[in-house]
Lab assay of single mutants.
Amino acid sequence: GKELVLALYDYQEKSPREVTMKKGDILTLLNSTNKDWWKVEVKATANDKTYERQGFVPAAYVKKL
């Protein structure tokens, strides 16, 4: 199945390749080969529509579930 990670801290994206997350968010882990930056998929809701974004977050800010 898919691997999930838990956001340990809030993170505000600093570039278009990154994604914003809030502490407590559960994210889908896409790639953890880089030890510093993990690629995740974030589900977000805006205007009653759910959309998914993929991007990088600092590996130290998340932990595998």
Rank of each mutant, 00 (worst) to 15 (best):
G55S: 01
T20H: 04
W37M: 05
L29F: 02
I26M: 05
E13C: 11
K14W: 03
V40L: 04
L8F: 04
K49E: 13
T28D: 05
E13M: 13
E41W: 07
T20D: 03
A60R: 14
R17C: 15
T45L: 12
F56S: 01
R17T: 12
K43L: 14
A44G: 12
V62H: 01
G55L: 04
P58Q: 02
L29T: 00
I26H: 03
D25S: 06
T28H: 09
N47I: 09
S15T: 10
Q12I: 14
T33I: 09
D48R: 07
Q12E: 11
K49W: 10
Q54P: 04
E41H: 07
V62R: 00
Q54F: 07
L4I: 06
G1S: 13
L30Y: 04
A44M: 15
G1D: 11
V5L: 10
A44W: 15
T28F: 10
L6W: 06
I26V: 12
T50K: 09
G24A: 02
R17F: 12
E13F: 07
A44H: 14
Y61C: 13
D10C: 06
E13K: 12
V62Y: 03
A46T: 13
E18Q: 11
L8T: 03
T50S: 10
D10K: 03
K43I: 15
L6S: 04
T33L: 09
K64V: 11
W37L: 03
V57S: 00
L65G: 02
I26K: 04
V5S: 02
D48L: 08
N34L: 09
L27A: 06
T28V: 15
S15G: 13
L4S: 07
A60V: 09
W38D: 00
N31F: 06
Y11H: 02
K39W: 14
K14N: 09
A59C: 06
K23T: 06
A60D: 09
G1W: 12
Y11C: 01
N31R: 05
K39G: 05
W38Q: 00
L29C: 05
D48Y: 07
T45N: 12
V42L: 11
L8R: 05
R53Y: 07
K22T: 08
T33P: 04
L6F: 08
P16M: 08
